[in-house]
Amino acid sequence: MGREDKAMVKKAEAATGADNRPFLFRRHDAGTIREAYRKMLLIRAFEEGAENAYMRGLVHGTMHLSIGQEASAVGVGLALRDDDQITSTHRGHGHSIAKGAEVKRMFAEFFGKETGYCRGRGGSMHIADVSKGNLGANGIVGGGIPIAVGAALSARRLGNGKVVVCFFGDGANNEGAFHEALNMAAIWKLPVVFVCENNGYGMSTSQARATASATIAERAGAYAMPGRTIDGNDLSAVAEATEDAVSRARNGEGPSLIELKTYRWRGHSKSDRNRYRTKEEIDHWMTENDPVKRIEADLVAFGILDEAGLDAVRASVAEEIEAGIAFAKESPSPDPADLERFVYTEGA
């Protein structure tokens, strides 16, 4: 919706009493919506901070940035309870933040420090925060999918009412693990929601070249579960579709598959020379379909934040990122004498 359309919607509502605002604004209070927006900004700023640190030689290794995909992580997070669980992917920084991780400990992990979420042992590809229900990113494409189903089996067996969201990318939908896990989740009607962040490419290979079906959502049909394709850059649409699937799961009606169409602005990883997509395509997504700009327009249109309010959030995010990087830089590295710690459970 353009801004004028939104103004008209508001007027129409005033006349009829109906609330025709998008789901997000009907379902959530202003504080929750502002927090969701802040998380989207925080994700983007974290990714930019990580990239910058890498360019400046402050970290080694590689990273997979999710700039451009912020709405999918945050929209899914809006539908979850604190004790619900997620499994994440190699492109998982956004999922962590959406599930409540602190950026300072994420930066510390990225910098390989003892204060990081994995005490510097995991790095970017393994950030987890089990206390917040984040069972971890994963370096293996599709590796988290059976694990999510296992967590859902626990939830059912332990009767704790938790729902598990399994994030994966379009590349993972051609792994055997995807098919095996979806099938078992369906035959056992487990409380799990499969969220495919379809950014169009598995590394360099486009969905059209890699996946026989036109959509990933339609693969749900093979496993007798609902599958929907959603605009993954529309925070409200993501939150709404996820909430439907989560309530279905929580009510014992079984798993669902949601395909969120989105786009990563950066390359697959730092080795990417971007030979498989055009500058025009990237520019189009960046200028016409930026999830952050889209939510900002809605926030203003529906009176949640004005321009000054947006600026204040931006400033507070910049401050948190700066403090997080400083914390990471100052934190101690693990002691090499502790090299073998955590291979096995101590005292076992």
């Binding site: 059976p146 626990s154 067996r157 095996e180």
Partner: peptide, 12 residues
Amino acid sequence: GGAGIAVGAAVT
């Protein structure tokens, strides 16, 4: 898938 489900269940 089965082994992975067992792993996920063990962690949780």
